[in-house]
């Protein structure tokens, strides 16, 4: 199988503090990969390296068969690697429609952004209701929808989602999970990072557990998924490291 994304022995950090310690992983062209693990262990930094926002110290990243080092986020977006970042700040003073239009035109779909918006509104009817509203005045769940919608506007080959349900109430989270199932149907390949382990396992084919900047455990999402096993790995893993 030819991988869509290959991350090989990537080392990265901020200043003198190392975050990623030679992490490697691949994502196939029709595959959904989950990343699990506690906060502060390098998942977001990894995603920022993949999408070109952060330069790794060493290691290689290749997307769609081409070396992606030195590519700007814009180059990668236009080649189909789309990263919806963590947090729901978005663009507080752009309306939902403006933000979606921008996501379409900036990713090189300047002529077809209207069709794109129609498709996004099909996936997220709520966004259609809120189309004229400033994103800064949306509720938390709606903001996440707007972020996902902006991701879809770029017509991704690989969609990267960083903590889409962070900070949402259980009810809203449930609603968003249904949206995420629809999003999964719209994109060929996906990387999903989220604190909700069940959600990640439901929406992915494989998963990695990331601890201290490296993959410490991997598995298929639909087999051997007893929650107890995962819990003990999480807690046991961190406890060992602390001792």
């Amino acid at each position: 199988m030819n991988a869509l994304l290959t991350v090989d022995k990537v080392v990265a950090g901020y200043g003198r503090s190392g975050v990623l310690r030679g992490i490697s992983l691949t994502v196939g062209p029709a595959e959904s990969l989950g990343l699990l693990g506690p906060n502060g262990h390098g998942k977001t930094t990894l995603l920022r390296c993949v999408s070109g926002l952060h330069r790794p110290t060493s290691g290689t990243i290749a997307f769609a068969g081409r070396d992606a080092r030195g590519d700007t986020p814009g180059d990668l977006v236009r080649r189909g690697l789309v990263h919806v970042p963590q947090g729901s700040r978005l663009f507080p003073q752009l309306s939902v429609e403006e933000a979606l239009r921008l996501a379409g035109t900036a990713s090189g779909h300047g002529k077809t952004w209207r069709d794109g918006i129609a498709q996004v509104f099909d996936v997220f009817p709520r966004l259609k209701e809120r189309r004229r509203q400033l994103t800064g005045t949306l509720s938390g769940g709606e903001r996440q929808m707007a972020g996902l919608g902006m991701g879809l506007m770029a017509r991704p080959k690989l969609l990267i989602l960083d903590e889409p349900t962070l900070g949402l109430s259980p009810k809203v989270k449930h609603e968003l999970s249904e949206c995420l199932v629809r999003v999964r149907g719209e994109v060929p390949a996906m990387i999903l990072v989220d604190g909700d382990m069940d959600l990640v396992l439901d929406l992915t084919d494989r998963y990695h557990v990331v601890l201290h900047g490296d993959v410490v455990h991997s598995g298929d999402s639909d087999t051997s998924r007893t929650r107890d096993e995962m819990m003990s790995l999480f807690l046991g893993g961190t406890a060992d490291e602390r001792n």
């Binding site: 926002l53 986020p73 970042p85």
Partner: peptide
């Protein structure tokens, strides 16, 4: 950051 991720 997000603007760059959109391709700007």
């Amino acid at each position: 950051d997000h603007a760059q991720l959109l391709g700007i």
